[in-house]
Amino acid sequence: MTASKQQQFFERMATQNASYRYYLPSKPDVGRFIDNLIRFLFPITQDCRSLVASTADTYHELNNRLSCLLKPLSEHLPTDREMIVEQFFDYLPTTYEELLLDAQAISAFDPAASGVEEVIAIYPGFYAIAVYRIAHVLTDLNVPLLPRMMTEYAHSHTGIDIHPNAEIGSSFFVDHGTGVVIGETAVIGSNVKIYQGVTLGATNVAKSMASKKRHPTIEDNVIIYANATILGGRTVVGHDSMIGGNVWLTQSVEPYSRVYHTSQIEVRSLTSES
């Protein structure tokens, strides 16, 4: 590249860089904060090379890390970033109890789980839920973009896409999880179980619908089996319902409903082509 073309390229980048509304922390820093916070809450896995710090020292370092993550967003925050850090950590005991309920629900209902330790240390569903609940606190504190960076970090590691703005009740169970999508305005009650490939999505993806409720409401005690797709902001799955695998649902169902996808079975005769 000639010097003149190089200079033109640099000027083009500078113009574009000046047009951005937001600056953000790096993805690796966001990921490290998430993983260190989860390890702080649940010190079940150990890094062979890390030094063991006191709980108080680790807690203080996590406060500093979150403040650092918020720094590039300072001008877009609703209040001083140190106040947001304080509010976030004030809520951390509640987040901890919520995550214990999630881990206990997964352990109780998955026959393959040996206990909450396995769920916390190994299960991608629990990891995605943990990151969602952490990010959702920041969403409630009106922090822009950083919560989405957190849940997309979990998405990249688990294949589970939970928008941080979604509302999810207690004792949430995502089994296997790969391919699960939970949209921004989805509302999920307590004791809900979701299997792999489930989509809680929108029927209309127009930008003009951004401020509307576009995703379904799932009431308490619902089970949604693999690859079911439930769409629409007015769609409500009533409590204690079961949605079978591969169901496509765009209308509400009453409580205690059972919705199935019916397969067509044909038995070939012995003389038919094999």
Rank of each mutant, 00 (worst) to 15 (best):
T2I: 02
K5N: 13
F9I: 09
F9E: 08
R12I: 11
A14C: 02
Q16V: 10
Q16N: 08
Y23L: 04
P25Y: 03
S26H: 12
R32S: 11
L41K: 02
C48Y: 08
D57Q: 11
Y59V: 00
E61K: 12
N63I: 00
L66D: 01
L69G: 00
S74N: 07
E75S: 11
E75K: 13
H76L: 01
H76I: 01
L77V: 02
M83Q: 07
E86D: 05
L92S: 04
L99Y: 04
Q104M: 13
F109Y: 14
G115P: 02
V116S: 02
A121D: 01
G125C: 03
Y127R: 11
A128H: 03
I129P: 00
I129W: 02
D140C: 06
D140L: 12
D140I: 03
N142H: 14
P144N: 05
L145Q: 10
D161S: 14
P164I: 05
G169I: 06
G169P: 13
T185S: 09
V187C: 15
I188Y: 00
I188L: 10
Y195S: 08
A202M: 10
A202V: 10
M209E: 04
M209K: 13
A210T: 07
K213Q: 11
P216Y: 06
I218S: 06
Y225H: 12
A228N: 07
H239Y: 07
S241P: 07
I243D: 11
G245T: 09
Q251H: 13
H261E: 14
R268N: 14
S274P: 02
